[in-house]
Computed example of a mutant assay.
Amino acid sequence: MNPNTLLASHIIKTLATKQLKICTVESFTGGLISYHLSSIANASQVFLGGIVSYSNEAKSNLLSIPMQTIINYNPASIEVLESMLEGGIRNFHSDLVIASTGIAGPSGAMKNKPLGTIYLGILHKNGKKKLLNLRLKGNRNLIQNQAVMIIFKNTLDFLKSF
């Protein structure tokens, strides 16, 4: 079994035990987080769904992130990530949301944000959150898969407090 699918299985079981629901809001991972969660049998008991908000317009329209926030901070920023998390909780009425935004390449790098700059986050409806800003190495596929593994491991750790 794929390591990310195995982690997703642990997340689904933990959520079911704790009677919590989860949703996803993804950008650079393009639905990969949702894919792994939904590949687990009985995931529908705890996984409400996901939004892939890849473009700035999708972030603004689907998650109600002000375009000015996206322009001021850049789509790959902690500020946009936090807005994505809030939009996920609001749209799904979920207990938990996990989100991703970043620059997986091969283009899109900026002077202060090289390829592999990613932001991952977890938010509980009570306001408790965990935000990660990482620099990952590798090609696009490797960066995406590493990010999924990191957010899944952090989600399992985050769930221990509930």
Rank of each mutant, 00 (worst) to 15 (best):
M1P: 15
M1A: 14
M1N: 15
M1D: 15
N2T: 13
T5V: 10
L6V: 13
A8F: 01
H10S: 07
K13V: 02
K13W: 01
T14F: 00
T14N: 06
T14D: 07
A16D: 11
K18V: 06
K18C: 01
L20V: 02
K21V: 11
T24L: 10
E26C: 08
E26G: 01
F28I: 03
F28Q: 08
F28M: 07
G30Q: 08
G31R: 06
I33P: 11
S34Y: 13
S34N: 15
Y35R: 14
H36C: 06
H36Y: 13
H36N: 12
S38P: 09
S39D: 14
A41Q: 10
N42A: 09
A43H: 09
A43K: 02
Q45E: 15
V46T: 11
V46M: 09
V46R: 00
F47P: 09
F47H: 06
L48R: 12
L48F: 11
L48S: 08
G50Q: 03
G50W: 05
I51V: 14
I51F: 15
S53G: 12
S53L: 07
N56M: 11
N56I: 03
E57D: 15
E57W: 10
K59C: 01
K59T: 00
S60G: 05
N61V: 10
N61P: 10
N61F: 10
L62K: 10
S64L: 12
M67T: 15
Q68C: 03
T69D: 04
T69I: 13
I71D: 04
N72A: 14
N72P: 01
Y73V: 10
Y73A: 13
S77P: 00
S77R: 01
I78S: 13
E79M: 08
E79F: 03
V80P: 08
L81H: 00
L85M: 06
E86M: 09
I89R: 00
I89W: 02
R90A: 13
F92S: 09
H93Y: 12
H93I: 11
H93R: 13
S94N: 07
V97E: 07
V97I: 10
I98C: 14
I98K: 07
I98N: 07
S100H: 07
G102V: 02
I103P: 04
I103W: 05
A104T: 14
A104I: 11
G105Q: 00
G105L: 03
P106G: 03
M110T: 06
N112F: 02
K113R: 13
L115P: 08
L115W: 02
G116L: 03
G116W: 01
T117V: 04
I118K: 13
I118S: 05
Y119P: 05
L120W: 02
I122Q: 08
I122L: 14
I122W: 07
L123A: 04
H124A: 09
H124I: 01
L131N: 06
R135P: 05
R135M: 08
L136I: 03
L136C: 04
K137Y: 00
N139D: 14
N139I: 12
R140A: 14
R140M: 12
L142A: 15
I143P: 06
Q144A: 04
N145K: 12
N145Q: 13
A147W: 09
A147Y: 01
A147T: 14
A147I: 06
I151V: 04
N154E: 12
T155G: 05
T155W: 04
D157K: 15
F158C: 03
K160A: 11
S161T: 13
F162I: 05
F162Y: 15
